[in-house]
Amino acid sequence: MPHLTVLEGEDRFYFKLAFCSFFLIILMVASLHFGAEIYTPYEVWNAFWELETEASIIIQTLRVPRMVLAPVTGMALALSGLLLQTVSGNPLASPAFLGVNSGAAFFVLLAFSFFGFTSLWFLSLIAFAGALTAISLVFLLAFSFGASFQQSTLLLAGITLSSFLSSAITILLATNETTLEALLFWLSGSFANRDMSGLIIVVPVLFFSIIVTLIMKSSLDSLLMDDESAKALGLSIFKLRLFFIFLSALLASLAVVLAGPVAFIGLVAPHIAKNYAGLSHLRNIPFCLLFGAHLTLMADIATRILLSPSEAPLSAVLAFIGVPFLVFLLLSKKRGVVG
Protein backbone atom coordinates (compact mmCIF):
# COMPACT_ATOMS: atom_id res chain seq x y z
CA MET A 1 0.00 0.00 0.00
CA PRO A 2 1.65 3.23 -1.12
CA HIS A 3 1.50 5.98 1.43
CA LEU A 4 -0.50 9.12 0.81
CA THR A 5 1.19 12.44 1.22
CA VAL A 6 -1.81 14.62 1.79
CA LEU A 7 -0.69 17.48 3.91
CA GLU A 8 3.00 17.78 3.40
CA GLY A 9 4.59 20.74 1.65
CA GLU A 10 1.57 23.09 1.50
CA ASP A 11 3.57 26.08 0.24
CA ARG A 12 5.56 24.22 -2.31
CA PHE A 13 2.34 22.87 -3.76
CA TYR A 14 1.18 26.32 -4.78
CA PHE A 15 4.63 27.30 -5.91
CA LYS A 16 4.85 24.20 -8.08
CA LEU A 17 1.38 24.82 -9.41
CA ALA A 18 2.23 28.40 -10.34
CA PHE A 19 5.47 27.32 -11.94
CA CYS A 20 3.85 24.62 -14.06
CA SER A 21 1.03 26.92 -15.15
CA PHE A 22 3.58 29.52 -16.16
CA PHE A 23 5.45 26.90 -18.16
CA LEU A 24 2.22 25.99 -19.92
CA ILE A 25 1.77 29.59 -21.00
CA ILE A 26 5.34 29.71 -22.28
CA LEU A 27 4.77 26.56 -24.30
CA MET A 28 1.54 27.91 -25.74
CA VAL A 29 3.28 31.09 -26.83
CA ALA A 30 6.16 29.07 -28.23
CA SER A 31 3.71 26.98 -30.20
CA LEU A 32 2.76 30.16 -32.07
CA HIS A 33 6.36 30.82 -33.02
CA PHE A 34 7.65 27.45 -34.16
CA GLY A 35 6.77 25.41 -37.17
CA ALA A 36 7.75 25.05 -40.79
CA GLU A 37 8.15 28.82 -40.66
CA ILE A 38 9.75 30.28 -37.53
CA TYR A 39 8.59 33.74 -36.52
CA THR A 40 10.05 36.28 -34.15
CA PRO A 41 7.89 37.48 -31.25
CA TYR A 42 7.56 40.80 -33.07
CA GLU A 43 6.16 39.11 -36.17
CA VAL A 44 3.78 37.05 -34.10
CA TRP A 45 2.53 40.10 -32.27
CA ASN A 46 1.95 41.92 -35.54
CA ALA A 47 0.27 38.91 -37.10
CA PHE A 48 -2.60 39.27 -34.69
CA TRP A 49 -3.45 42.76 -35.87
CA GLU A 50 -2.73 42.35 -39.56
CA LEU A 51 -4.91 40.74 -42.14
CA GLU A 52 -4.01 38.87 -45.28
CA THR A 53 -0.27 38.67 -44.72
CA GLU A 54 1.27 35.22 -44.86
CA ALA A 55 2.22 35.29 -41.21
CA SER A 56 -1.21 36.38 -40.07
CA ILE A 57 -2.92 33.63 -42.02
CA ILE A 58 -0.58 30.94 -40.74
CA ILE A 59 -0.78 32.09 -37.16
CA GLN A 60 -4.43 32.95 -36.94
CA THR A 61 -5.90 30.06 -38.88
CA LEU A 62 -3.32 27.33 -38.35
CA ARG A 63 -1.38 27.87 -35.16
CA VAL A 64 -3.91 29.39 -32.82
CA PRO A 65 -6.26 26.39 -33.11
CA ARG A 66 -3.38 24.04 -32.43
CA MET A 67 -2.28 26.12 -29.46
CA VAL A 68 -5.71 25.54 -27.95
CA LEU A 69 -6.43 22.02 -29.14
CA ALA A 70 -3.17 20.47 -27.99
CA PRO A 71 -3.40 21.35 -24.30
CA VAL A 72 -7.09 20.47 -24.09
CA THR A 73 -6.45 17.08 -25.66
CA GLY A 74 -3.48 16.54 -23.40
CA MET A 75 -5.48 17.35 -20.30
CA ALA A 76 -8.33 15.07 -21.26
CA LEU A 77 -5.99 12.16 -21.97
CA ALA A 78 -3.93 12.70 -18.85
CA LEU A 79 -6.95 12.78 -16.57
CA SER A 80 -8.38 9.76 -18.34
CA GLY A 81 -5.14 7.86 -17.80
CA LEU A 82 -4.92 8.84 -14.15
CA LEU A 83 -8.46 7.63 -13.50
CA LEU A 84 -7.82 4.35 -15.27
CA GLN A 85 -4.63 3.73 -13.34
CA THR A 86 -6.32 4.41 -10.03
CA VAL A 87 -9.45 2.44 -10.80
CA SER A 88 -7.75 -0.62 -12.21
CA GLY A 89 -4.86 -0.57 -9.75
CA ASN A 90 -2.71 -1.09 -12.81
CA PRO A 91 0.03 1.47 -13.32
CA LEU A 92 0.21 0.53 -16.99
CA ALA A 93 -3.44 1.20 -17.69
CA SER A 94 -3.87 3.96 -20.19
CA PRO A 95 -6.55 4.74 -22.75
CA ALA A 96 -4.45 3.60 -25.71
CA PHE A 97 -3.57 0.26 -24.13
CA LEU A 98 -7.22 -0.36 -23.39
CA GLY A 99 -8.33 -0.15 -26.99
CA VAL A 100 -9.62 3.42 -27.19
CA ASN A 101 -7.53 4.38 -30.17
CA SER A 102 -7.95 1.27 -32.23
CA GLY A 103 -11.68 1.25 -31.50
CA ALA A 104 -12.01 4.81 -32.74
CA ALA A 105 -9.85 4.19 -35.77
CA PHE A 106 -11.75 1.06 -36.67
CA PHE A 107 -15.14 2.74 -36.53
CA VAL A 108 -13.88 5.72 -38.53
CA LEU A 109 -12.52 3.44 -41.20
CA LEU A 110 -15.75 1.49 -41.39
CA ALA A 111 -17.76 4.67 -41.72
CA PHE A 112 -15.38 6.06 -44.30
CA SER A 113 -14.89 3.07 -46.53
CA PHE A 114 -18.32 1.44 -46.41
CA PHE A 115 -20.68 4.33 -45.94
CA GLY A 116 -18.61 7.05 -47.52
CA PHE A 117 -18.88 9.53 -44.67
CA THR A 118 -16.36 12.28 -45.11
CA SER A 119 -17.51 15.11 -42.85
CA LEU A 120 -14.85 15.51 -40.21
CA TRP A 121 -17.42 16.42 -37.62
CA PHE A 122 -19.40 13.28 -38.23
CA LEU A 123 -16.29 11.09 -38.29
CA SER A 124 -15.43 12.52 -34.90
CA LEU A 125 -18.75 11.33 -33.55
CA ILE A 126 -18.13 7.90 -35.03
CA ALA A 127 -14.68 7.86 -33.46
CA PHE A 128 -16.25 8.65 -30.11
CA ALA A 129 -18.66 5.74 -30.46
CA GLY A 130 -15.83 3.42 -31.45
CA ALA A 131 -13.63 4.42 -28.56
CA LEU A 132 -16.39 3.96 -26.04
CA THR A 133 -17.34 0.57 -27.49
CA ALA A 134 -13.80 -0.71 -27.40
CA ILE A 135 -13.03 0.31 -23.85
CA SER A 136 -16.32 -1.11 -22.60
CA LEU A 137 -15.53 -4.40 -24.28
CA VAL A 138 -12.12 -4.53 -22.68
CA PHE A 139 -13.46 -3.93 -19.21
CA LEU A 140 -16.26 -6.41 -19.78
CA LEU A 141 -13.67 -8.98 -20.76
CA ALA A 142 -11.44 -8.23 -17.80
CA PHE A 143 -14.41 -8.32 -15.42
CA SER A 144 -15.48 -11.65 -16.81
CA PHE A 145 -12.26 -13.21 -15.56
CA GLY A 146 -13.16 -12.54 -11.98
CA ALA A 147 -14.92 -10.20 -9.62
CA SER A 148 -11.94 -7.92 -9.18
CA PHE A 149 -9.39 -6.90 -11.72
CA GLN A 150 -6.39 -9.02 -12.23
CA GLN A 151 -3.78 -6.58 -13.40
CA SER A 152 -2.29 -8.45 -16.30
CA THR A 153 -5.67 -9.64 -17.52
CA LEU A 154 -6.93 -6.12 -18.05
CA LEU A 155 -3.81 -5.21 -19.96
CA LEU A 156 -3.85 -8.36 -22.03
CA ALA A 157 -7.52 -7.99 -22.80
CA GLY A 158 -6.90 -4.44 -24.00
CA ILE A 159 -3.94 -5.35 -26.10
CA THR A 160 -5.62 -8.38 -27.60
CA LEU A 161 -8.68 -6.37 -28.57
CA SER A 162 -6.43 -3.63 -29.95
CA SER A 163 -4.47 -6.11 -31.98
CA PHE A 164 -7.67 -7.59 -33.35
CA LEU A 165 -8.95 -4.16 -34.32
CA SER A 166 -5.62 -3.18 -35.83
CA SER A 167 -5.58 -6.27 -37.98
CA ALA A 168 -9.09 -5.42 -39.10
CA ILE A 169 -7.87 -1.88 -39.85
CA THR A 170 -4.90 -3.27 -41.73
CA ILE A 171 -7.17 -5.43 -43.85
CA LEU A 172 -9.47 -2.53 -44.66
CA LEU A 173 -6.51 -0.40 -45.61
CA ALA A 174 -4.72 -3.09 -47.56
CA THR A 175 -7.73 -3.68 -49.77
CA ASN A 176 -8.34 -0.04 -50.52
CA GLU A 177 -5.51 2.25 -51.47
CA THR A 178 -7.57 5.45 -51.71
CA THR A 179 -8.86 5.02 -48.18
CA LEU A 180 -5.33 4.45 -47.08
CA GLU A 181 -4.15 7.67 -48.61
CA ALA A 182 -6.98 9.69 -47.15
CA LEU A 183 -6.86 8.25 -43.66
CA LEU A 184 -3.27 7.28 -43.01
CA PHE A 185 -2.59 10.64 -41.50
CA TRP A 186 -5.75 10.72 -39.44
CA LEU A 187 -4.81 7.33 -38.09
CA SER A 188 -1.57 8.52 -36.62
CA GLY A 189 -3.14 11.43 -34.81
CA SER A 190 -2.40 15.07 -35.41
CA PHE A 191 -3.55 18.57 -34.63
CA ALA A 192 -3.04 19.82 -38.15
CA ASN A 193 -6.19 21.14 -39.85
CA ARG A 194 -8.43 20.05 -37.02
CA ASP A 195 -11.80 21.55 -36.32
CA MET A 196 -12.02 23.84 -33.32
CA SER A 197 -15.76 23.31 -33.08
CA GLY A 198 -15.20 20.08 -31.14
CA LEU A 199 -14.07 22.23 -28.25
CA ILE A 200 -17.67 23.31 -27.64
CA ILE A 201 -18.34 19.86 -26.27
CA VAL A 202 -14.93 18.82 -25.03
CA VAL A 203 -14.14 21.84 -22.88
CA PRO A 204 -17.34 21.69 -20.79
CA VAL A 205 -16.98 17.93 -20.32
CA LEU A 206 -13.35 18.32 -19.32
CA PHE A 207 -14.25 21.09 -16.93
CA PHE A 208 -17.04 19.04 -15.42
CA SER A 209 -14.76 16.00 -15.06
CA ILE A 210 -12.09 18.01 -13.31
CA ILE A 211 -14.60 19.38 -10.83
CA VAL A 212 -16.13 15.96 -10.21
CA THR A 213 -12.82 14.21 -9.70
CA LEU A 214 -11.61 16.91 -7.37
CA ILE A 215 -14.79 16.62 -5.34
CA MET A 216 -14.51 12.84 -5.23
CA LYS A 217 -10.80 12.91 -4.46
CA SER A 218 -11.09 10.92 -1.24
CA SER A 219 -13.04 8.14 -2.94
CA LEU A 220 -10.32 7.98 -5.54
CA ASP A 221 -7.68 7.84 -2.82
CA SER A 222 -9.44 4.92 -1.18
CA LEU A 223 -9.57 3.05 -4.47
CA LEU A 224 -5.79 2.79 -4.25
CA MET A 225 -6.25 0.27 -1.47
CA ASP A 226 -7.11 -3.36 -1.96
CA ASP A 227 -10.77 -4.11 -2.56
CA GLU A 228 -11.60 -5.53 0.80
CA SER A 229 -10.09 -2.72 2.81
CA ALA A 230 -11.86 -0.17 0.62
CA LYS A 231 -15.14 -1.99 1.08
CA ALA A 232 -14.54 -2.08 4.81
CA LEU A 233 -14.27 1.71 4.71
CA GLY A 234 -17.81 1.79 3.37
CA LEU A 235 -17.21 2.49 -0.31
CA SER A 236 -19.35 0.90 -2.96
CA ILE A 237 -16.35 0.02 -5.04
CA PHE A 238 -18.18 -1.43 -7.96
CA LYS A 239 -20.29 1.65 -8.60
CA LEU A 240 -17.35 3.96 -8.10
CA ARG A 241 -15.23 1.99 -10.52
CA LEU A 242 -17.95 1.90 -13.10
CA PHE A 243 -18.43 5.64 -12.80
CA PHE A 244 -14.77 6.48 -13.12
CA ILE A 245 -14.24 4.05 -15.96
CA PHE A 246 -17.09 5.72 -17.80
CA LEU A 247 -15.67 9.16 -17.11
CA SER A 248 -12.26 8.07 -18.23
CA ALA A 249 -13.58 6.47 -21.40
CA LEU A 250 -15.57 9.62 -22.12
CA LEU A 251 -12.51 11.82 -21.78
CA ALA A 252 -10.31 9.58 -23.89
CA SER A 253 -12.93 9.29 -26.59
CA LEU A 254 -13.36 13.05 -26.70
CA ALA A 255 -9.62 13.41 -27.08
CA VAL A 256 -9.88 11.15 -30.11
CA VAL A 257 -12.48 13.53 -31.51
CA LEU A 258 -10.03 16.41 -31.23
CA ALA A 259 -6.81 14.82 -32.40
CA GLY A 260 -7.41 11.29 -33.66
CA PRO A 261 -5.69 8.41 -31.93
CA VAL A 262 -2.96 9.71 -29.65
CA ALA A 263 -1.03 7.32 -27.43
CA PHE A 264 1.21 7.64 -24.38
CA ILE A 265 -0.03 10.95 -22.92
CA GLY A 266 -2.50 9.06 -20.78
CA LEU A 267 0.26 6.80 -19.56
CA VAL A 268 3.14 9.17 -19.05
CA ALA A 269 1.51 12.31 -17.66
CA PRO A 270 -0.12 10.65 -14.63
CA HIS A 271 3.14 9.00 -13.69
CA ILE A 272 5.11 12.21 -13.77
CA ALA A 273 2.36 13.86 -11.76
CA LYS A 274 2.38 11.10 -9.15
CA ASN A 275 6.12 11.32 -8.79
CA TYR A 276 6.00 15.10 -8.58
CA ALA A 277 3.04 15.61 -6.30
CA GLY A 278 2.44 12.33 -4.52
CA LEU A 279 -0.44 9.89 -4.64
CA SER A 280 -3.15 12.09 -3.13
CA HIS A 281 -5.55 12.91 -5.92
CA LEU A 282 -6.28 16.39 -4.69
CA ARG A 283 -2.63 17.16 -5.31
CA ASN A 284 -1.78 15.16 -8.36
CA ILE A 285 -4.83 15.90 -10.50
CA PRO A 286 -3.82 19.53 -11.21
CA PHE A 287 -0.30 18.47 -12.11
CA CYS A 288 -1.53 15.57 -14.15
CA LEU A 289 -3.60 17.99 -16.24
CA LEU A 290 -0.71 20.42 -16.62
CA PHE A 291 1.85 17.77 -17.56
CA GLY A 292 -0.57 16.32 -20.08
CA ALA A 293 -0.89 19.74 -21.66
CA HIS A 294 2.89 20.31 -21.60
CA LEU A 295 3.66 17.00 -23.23
CA THR A 296 1.09 17.36 -25.95
CA LEU A 297 2.16 20.89 -26.80
CA MET A 298 5.80 19.91 -26.94
CA ALA A 299 5.02 16.89 -29.09
CA ASP A 300 2.89 19.03 -31.39
CA ILE A 301 5.70 21.54 -31.84
CA ALA A 302 8.07 18.64 -32.51
CA THR A 303 5.81 17.23 -35.25
CA ARG A 304 6.08 20.53 -37.09
CA ILE A 305 9.84 20.86 -36.80
CA LEU A 306 11.00 17.26 -37.14
CA LEU A 307 10.22 16.55 -40.79
CA SER A 308 9.73 20.17 -41.79
CA PRO A 309 8.28 21.22 -44.16
CA SER A 310 6.04 18.13 -43.92
CA GLU A 311 4.49 16.98 -40.65
CA ALA A 312 5.60 14.01 -38.60
CA PRO A 313 2.80 11.86 -37.16
CA LEU A 314 2.01 12.89 -33.62
CA SER A 315 1.70 9.35 -32.31
CA ALA A 316 5.14 8.49 -33.62
CA VAL A 317 6.68 11.50 -31.90
CA LEU A 318 4.90 10.61 -28.68
CA ALA A 319 6.08 7.02 -28.92
CA PHE A 320 9.66 8.23 -29.14
CA ILE A 321 9.14 10.17 -25.94
CA GLY A 322 6.83 7.68 -24.30
CA VAL A 323 8.54 4.34 -24.88
CA PRO A 324 11.85 5.24 -23.26
CA PHE A 325 9.86 6.67 -20.39
CA LEU A 326 7.81 3.50 -20.10
CA VAL A 327 10.94 1.34 -20.13
CA PHE A 328 12.47 3.52 -17.47
CA LEU A 329 9.31 3.19 -15.41
CA LEU A 330 9.29 -0.58 -15.73
CA LEU A 331 12.94 -0.91 -14.87
CA SER A 332 12.75 1.33 -11.83
CA LYS A 333 13.08 -0.83 -8.76
CA LYS A 334 10.72 1.25 -6.69
CA ARG A 335 8.15 -1.01 -5.10
CA GLY A 336 4.58 -0.41 -6.05
CA VAL A 337 5.33 1.33 -9.33
CA VAL A 338 4.83 -1.64 -11.58
CA GLY A 339 4.94 -4.78 -9.48
Partner: peptide, 26 residues
Protein backbone atom coordinates in the same frame (compact mmCIF):
# COMPACT_ATOMS: atom_id res chain seq x y z
CA UNK B 1 8.91 -5.03 -22.59
CA UNK B 2 7.38 -6.71 -25.61
CA UNK B 3 4.64 -4.11 -25.49
CA UNK B 4 7.23 -1.34 -25.25
CA UNK B 5 9.10 -2.62 -28.25
CA UNK B 6 5.89 -3.07 -30.21
CA UNK B 7 4.86 0.50 -29.50
CA UNK B 8 8.15 1.84 -30.74
CA UNK B 9 8.17 -0.42 -33.77
CA UNK B 10 4.62 0.57 -34.65
CA UNK B 11 5.54 4.25 -34.38
CA UNK B 12 8.49 3.72 -36.69
CA UNK B 13 6.32 1.77 -39.10
CA UNK B 14 3.76 4.54 -39.31
CA UNK B 15 6.51 7.09 -39.78
CA UNK B 16 8.10 5.07 -42.56
CA UNK B 17 4.80 4.52 -44.29
CA UNK B 18 4.10 8.22 -44.31
CA UNK B 19 7.55 9.06 -45.63
CA UNK B 20 7.58 6.31 -48.25
CA UNK B 21 5.60 6.13 -51.49
CA UNK B 22 1.94 5.27 -51.01
CA UNK B 23 1.91 2.02 -52.98
CA UNK B 24 4.68 0.78 -50.72
CA UNK B 25 2.51 1.57 -47.75
CA UNK B 26 -0.27 -0.57 -49.14
Amino acid sequence: YGICFSALATALISLLMIIGPIHRAS
